[in-house]
């Protein structure tokens, strides 16, 4: 029985301009789960991630961390790593220095840090690019650097905010399968935000569908497909059924919350 790692209890977040980003959200994430948050823009899926990461304050509710985790900080959370939608690299620093950043901030001695950095670069397949600058890399490679920087601290929980959203389809599916391979090896707990249903179903063993205004959970769908998931899985009927189900729940969610006519999905109104 896997232990819960992150528990959200009645979490709400209201921004100072009155926007209700999240309303009474409850969710428990088990150790080693790969959970995707899917939803229309403005449904608060990124807010969940930021709150879990400790970037921003809860309005009400609480976030609890699993009991039997290696604790890292006064807040009592395990080692977290965050991957943003943009690679968010320091343009003035080499790949090596970018990936070393978390270790440098933690005051780790350089020889040890360098070993860890090389190991992380090995994991994402970027050995040989240590001395390159971010501008010399392609979009996909920059994202790999960003992931290496997240992995270098050997995190227990990986938070990813639409990490592949800005990439082309080919790069995205390559990075998807590489990420999945790494996850099977390292078994982090992953919380993955995306607006791409196919990506969510391919990667996760659990897809949480959210709706906007106010941001809330409308469906929690387990994806019972075995790992490793090869490229064949992407064309299997099992995969397609899951995609259809998530898509249907997402449509429902948007339908239900469409007070704003501009947000109504195409099926909801006739063209005039």
């Amino acid at each position: 029985m896997p232990a819960p790692v992150i528990t959200l209890n009645h979490v709400s977040k209201v921004y100072s301009n009155g926007t209700v980003a999240l309303q009474d959200m409850n969710m428990t994430i088990q150790e080693g789960q790969f959970v995707s948050l899917v939803g229309p823009s403005g449904c608060g899926k990124s807010t969940v991630l930021r709150l879990v990461a400790g970037l921003g304050h809860l309005t009400t509710g609480s976030i609890e961390w699993g009991k039997n985790l290696e604790k890292d900080a006064p807040r009592g959370e395990p080692k977290l790593a965050f991957v943003f939608q943009e690679p968010a690299l320091m343009p003035w620093a080499t790949v090596m220095d970018n990936v070393r950043l978390p270790l440098k901030l933690a005051g780790e001695p350089k020889p040890k840090a360098d070993r860890d950095v090389l190991e992380a670069l090995q994991l994402v397949g970027l050995r040989g690019f240590e001395r390159s600058f971010p501008r010399e890399l392609s979009g996909g490679m920059r994202m790999r650097v960003s992931i290496a920087r997240a992995l270098v601290t050997k995190p227990q929980v990986l938070l990813m905010d639409e990490p592949f959203g800005a990439l082309d389809e080919i790069t995205r599916s390559k990075l998807n399968s590489d990420l999945l391979e790494l996850w099977q090896e390292k078994r982090w707990t992953v919380l993955f935000v995306t607006h791409n249903i196919y990506e969510a179903v391919y990667l996760s063993n659990r897809v949480v569908v959210m709706a906007a205004r106010p941001g809330r959970v409308v469906a929690d769908i387990p994806i019972d497909a075995p790992y490793p998931r090869s490229e064949d899985f992407r064309t299997s009927s099992l995969y397609n059924n899951y995609c259809r189900e998530v898509s249907a729940r997402l449509q429902e969610a948007m339908h239900g919350s469409a007070q704003d006519p501009y947000l109504r999905p195409p099926s909801a109104g006739r063209l005039r």
């Binding site: 930021r50 990461a53 965050f82 901030l105 933690a106 601290t153």
Partner: peptide, 21 residues
């Protein structure tokens, strides 16, 4: 870059580290 600022916050960088790095 605000993402980098968030990252520094996440890794608990202090004021001087954020300034210098």
């Amino acid at each position: 870059d605000h993402n980098l600022l968030n990252l520094f916050q996440l890794y608990k960088a202090n004021r001087w580290q954020t300034l210098i790095y």
